[in-house]
Design a protein around this nucleic acid. Structure first.
Lengths: 158, 158
DNA sequence: GCTCGATGAAACAATTTTGTCTCAAATTAA
DNA sequence: TTAATTTGAGACAAAATTGTTTCATCGAGC
């Protein structure tokens, strides 16, 4: 709590005034993370684009929020309350829908399990965010790189 | 500490006898994780195989140790001592060498940054382990799936 | 200037976690 | 069997973390 208070630039007392208790703080962060990613993704107008363009747009929108996404993935299977867990599960189902859309479009290989694709997308989001943070990849290339990695991998085309 | 003791099936007192202090325990787990993965990887005789076969062999060897690998990645940038951090850095350099080997063999696309490839391999190891743990993927398919995802992605070949 | 609400600092209590010690019981080795 | 070693249980102290309260202070708005 004191670390969080310092990072936020407020006193420990003020932190407790806004979030009465450690659990409430964790839940509030979780819900905020969900709200932010939800807002970023639902701002995409998927009516006009192909499923792969949509995937790229999602990566573009969510990779900068990779820390939020990761916080969710970690705490939703641990310290978070039931409310956050169910909200996170709904978010995952959103990714699943996207994967099914790509599968219907014939983009995904039939041998690729949906659950696996969902997990890979999740981990690529965080990996791309990490790569940007540690300076391995330029911010504006990260999403495209993750998207291409998901679709085509890193081997030479031929 | 008490959670670890319970999980290990020993008393808290015994845990303290073997690892005098929290820090020593964390470091011991970290070093053990490195030792195990090192042993698994160095058992592969890479002289007789192509770089992609080697990649698959590494996945086969390390995916079952995904929790060890992940523990390292998390603690090496936090609670671990300098010794563990440097040992982990050496391990990462091992992955980097493998990537460079693939690049020399012309397997990897020239546009794929080495650092990115290393991060993706790391995350795919843990993702594959997670997929097995949650039952999404059969244990004997996980490594091949991760390997194929890394090389070719999940899109339909053509 | 004045009031009101929010903040920071500090003291304080309560709880949790960590670390230590002792002793009886169990296990092992001789 | 006997001796040595290891363990578990529990009491205990020490430290860290969390939660609460008070009070002076700051700043915005009137």
């Amino acid at each position: 709590m004191s670390t969080v208070a310092d990072a936020a630039g407020v006193s420990r007392a003020t932190l407790h005034r806004h979030f009465p208790g450690r659990q409430r703080l964790i839940d509030a962060i979780g819900l905020e993370a969900i709200r932010e990613t939800d807002a970023a993704v639902s701002a995409i107008d998927y009516a006009k684009m192909s499923s792969t363009d949509y995937l790229l747009a999602v990566f573009e929108a969510v990779v900068p929020l990779g820390d939020r996404y990761h916080f969710l993935a970690v705490t939703a299977s641990g310290a978070a309350s039931e409310e956050v867990r169910t909200a996170y599960a709904r978010q995952i189902r959103g990714v699943e829908e996207m994967v099914r859309w790509m599968a219907r479009d014939g983009v995904l290989a039939p041998s690729a399990p949906v659950d696996w694709a969902v997990l890979v997308i999740d981990s690529l989001i965080y990996t791309a965010w990490t790569a940007v943070r540690e300076g391995s990849v330029a911010p504006r290339h990260a999403a495209a790189l993750a998207c291409r990695t998901f679709l085509s991998g890193l081997s030479k085309g031929e």
